[in-house]
Simulated scan of single mutants.
Amino acid sequence: MNQKVISATHIYILLIISTGFIVHVLSIPMLLTASKRDAWISVIFSSIPFALWILLVFYIYKKLNKNNITINSFLKMKYSILFAVVYGLYFFINAFISLKFTIIWAKTSYAFEVPNMVIVLSFSFICLYASIKGIRTISTIAIFILPLVSLFGVLVGVGNWPNKDFELLFPIFEKGYRDSLQGVAYACSGFFEIITLFFLSPYLKDKLKMKWLLLVGLMLVVLTLGPLMGALTEFGSVEAEKMMNPAYEQWRLLSIGQVTRLDFLSIFQWLSGSFIRISLSLFIAGKLFTYKENKRWILPAFYLCLILAVSFPWDATSFFYFLKKIYFPINLLFQICSLLLFLLLIHLKGDRHEE
């Protein structure tokens, strides 16, 4: 059966929505607590290593494509089970973090009286259905979602313009450069997730292009910088730092004429991003474990574990502490190690081809 069912456009959109969820939702609170008023400077600084990262990722992609090497190459190696477990666990954790944060936000924002299990089960079953249907379904849904998500983002950014005070962005480096550099690490931890494209390339019918990957990178920077600067100019650094989700809080300020409380639109934004990220992550994890044979129980098993893990009591404060001190630093280190692993694969496979 031919697995090449999506185009490069699909991958660009999946990267924007999936990676955009972490940089737009998860990274911003971490940036504000780490760099405070200078958080927006951290994002600008991080665009330099991010651009270099994209160039390196594209270089590896080209080499892999030239030598006809895919993720399947790893799964054919001697330690294929170890590879499947490590990366399957990585994508499972990504899905867990996304769903857990979504549940915390839903309970504190609009679903106060709805039981946790109702939210978890209903959303998980929707994501499970998409994961089972496959990458083509997920990417097709993403194409329809992206224009609406982008439109709503522009709406809240432009609509809140009268509420912005850009003087609140200054002075910069008031307490030195250290906080800004720390923020760069948090920003890059999210941005560097575009290495997910290596796991999507086996389903690609055509080829990725450098200019479009750079455009994806620019959009991810804007997705981070826009709401981050919005939070700082609308609430100030002190208040913005206290917020669990500054991007959502900006919707509470938005009004168009006599129409207020437009924050329901942000629910669509958030759930759309979370849906794509969770269903895509567990689709990839499932494929890593079903390479040699079709095991239909793998995906339901992953989702059952996800439901049980998310249902475990974990208060928002300690969860945020985990994200800041453990998840984001390890996520950054893991992605750097992954890129080095792909470079090693290129070297090993390249030598064999030359022989």
Results as ranks from 00 to 15, higher is better:
247 A>P: 07
27 S>M: 09
210 M>L: 08
249 E>F: 08
289 F>R: 01
100 K>G: 01
245 N>I: 15
109 S>Y: 00
275 F>H: 04
349 K>V: 13
241 E>H: 06
306 L>P: 01
99 L>H: 04
55 L>I: 15
6 I>M: 06
3 Q>P: 00
52 L>Y: 06
332 L>S: 12
107 K>G: 04
227 P>I: 14
292 K>D: 05
44 I>M: 06
5 V>L: 14
136 R>A: 10
243 M>Y: 07
279 S>A: 15
179 D>F: 06
240 A>C: 08
97 I>N: 03
280 L>H: 13
118 V>G: 00
295 K>N: 04
32 L>S: 11
170 F>Q: 12
271 L>C: 03
313 P>V: 03
190 G>V: 10
331 N>W: 09
100 K>Y: 01
207 K>I: 04
260 T>N: 08
205 K>M: 07
301 A>E: 03
38 D>R: 02
355 E>F: 06
236 G>C: 04
62 K>D: 09
53 W>H: 10
354 E>S: 13
123 F>M: 09
84 A>V: 11
217 G>D: 10
225 L>F: 00
181 L>W: 03
207 K>T: 08
264 F>W: 15
290 T>L: 01
115 P>K: 05
184 V>Q: 03
163 N>A: 14
6 I>F: 08
110 Y>D: 07
197 L>W: 11
26 L>K: 00
206 D>G: 00
207 K>N: 06
48 I>Y: 07
240 A>L: 04
77 M>A: 12
323 L>K: 05
43 V>K: 03
269 Q>C: 12
19 T>H: 03
55 L>F: 15
125 F>K: 01
247 A>N: 11
266 S>F: 13
253 L>A: 14
83 F>R: 03
342 F>N: 02
98 S>F: 05
331 N>E: 01
54 I>Q: 01
106 A>E: 02
98 S>L: 05
326 I>S: 03
10 H>D: 09
316 A>L: 06
265 L>D: 06
163 N>V: 06
9 T>I: 12
326 I>E: 06
186 Y>I: 05
355 E>A: 09
98 S>N: 05
33 T>W: 02
3 Q>H: 09
211 K>W: 09
15 L>S: 10
1 M>G: 09
232 L>H: 05
78 K>T: 13
170 F>R: 10
209 K>S: 03
329 P>Q: 10
308 L>I: 15
259 V>S: 05
261 R>E: 11
287 K>V: 10
209 K>P: 02
308 L>Y: 06
290 T>Y: 00
354 E>N: 13
239 E>D: 14
200 L>Y: 07
186 Y>R: 11
252 R>N: 14
327 Y>N: 05
